[in-house]
């Protein structure tokens, strides 16, 4: 087999494993952990569009998760509109907000952009905490919104078991990854890459860096808000401190940075490595050693930044390619003919 074939084969194998896993794994605890793992992988993949490819550091993506979650939940609870429609409405709203925030901030460099996004997301949190009624919409302030698990079914995005949620987030993740792959191979992807590495050189070549970044921001916000609706329907309870927290924003960024930002596999790899650490240390040491998983996150982050600034995907990809070399049949010029 050639390199390409082995790569396709292993990708298909991973896909099949992911799809049959709930049939083998019956424990709801493990399914819950897996759903959250995919949820974080999805969020990080969305973050990666702007944080990875555009070369800026957004640290307030939780705000867009919150906008998505609140929009669909309010429409569902007050007007009975299906969360599937609310999901799209929330994403469009998040995209508009994201573009409005991106317009003035994306021109700034590194630190200013990071600070602006932090302040924006904290501002959104404080606003929601202080508002009980926004016009006709009931936000319920710091108490949050509870989704009663009645009328379960696909139309209401409410299910009894965890399996449907598993498949929904898995399909969302695959679509986000495919979208990222498509973007990274498109003209926009190359513009972003050029603008992230050498903005002056890119601009000199006639690339509209600011516009490319803004488009990336809009797409990233759209995708992120979709996950907000998923989170609301999965946990059935949202409140500002849980969903628009700095911790969520930072965790998304950490996973991407450790996995390898700007690569397609990086975010998934990061989630795959870090989420189990966080979940299991919370299950086994949550009572005795609180905060252990965050210490581990911090240490891993610092070590990765010092020794592998491009993330863990780089050495792992290299190792995978070496492995391929050993098994793959060398394609020579004769074979190709």
């Amino acid at each position: 087999m050639t390199h390409q074939n082995i790569k396709k084969f292993s990708l298909a194998l991973v896909g099949i494993i992911a799809f049959v896993l709930p049939l083998v794994l019956r424990s709801p605890t493990y399914l819950h952990i897996l759903v959250l793992l995919y949820f974080y992988a999805y969020l990080t993949t969305s973050w990666n569009l702007v944080g990875g490819f555009a070369g800026v550091l957004p640290l307030g993506h939780a705000a867009f998760v919150g906008i998505g979650a609140y929009t669909s939940t309010i429409l569902f609870l007050q007007y009975g509109i299906s969360p599937w429609i609310g999901m799209i409405v929330g994403s469009i709203l998040a995209t508009i907000v994201g573009v409005l925030i991106g317009l003035p901030t994306l021109k700034m460099r590194g630190a200013y952009f990071a600070l602006a996004t932090i302040a924006f997301s904290e501002g959104v949190r404080v606003m929601i905490e202080n508002i009980d009624f926004l016009g006709p919409f009931k936000l319920n302030g710091p108490r949050g919104l509870l989704i009663p698990p009645l009328n379960t079914g696909l139309a209401n995005f409410l299910f009894v078991g965890k399996e449907p949620y598993y498949y929904i987030i898995l399909i969302m993740l695959i679509m986000a990854l495919a979208f990222t792959y498509f973007i990274s191979r498109s003209k926009l992807g190359y513009y972003l890459n050029a603008g992230g590495e050498e903005p002056e050189a890119a601009m000199a070549l006639g690339v509209n860096v600011a516009r490319a970044k803004l488009i990336a921001m809009a797409m990233s916000c759209f995708l992120t808000a979709l996950a907000g609706t998923f989170y609301a329907q999965f946990t059935l309870y949202i409140h500002p401190r849980s969903i628009i927290s700095l911790d969520l924003s930072f965790e998304i960024a950490f996973i991407a940075l450790i996995g390898g930002r700007g690569s397609i596999a990086g975010p998934v790899l990061g989630a795959l490595l870090l989420r189990p650490v966080s979940d299991f240390s919370r299950i086994y040491f949550g009572a005795t050693l609180p905060g252990l998983h965050l210490v581990i996150f911090g240490v891993v982050l610092v070590l990765v930044m010092i020794y592998q600034p491009r993330g863990l995907q780089e050495p792992l990809t290299r190792a995978f390619n070496k492995l391929l070399d050993r098994f793959a049949v060398k394609t020579t010029m004769e074979d190709k003919k």
Partner: peptide, 17 residues
């Protein structure tokens, strides 16, 4: 910037631990 964020997480949570 990212590394200082890592240091923040380590210091805060180590103190908590």
């Amino acid at each position: 910037i990212v590394v200082t964020t890592g240091i923040w997480y380590i210091l805060d949570n180590l103190t908590l631990l």
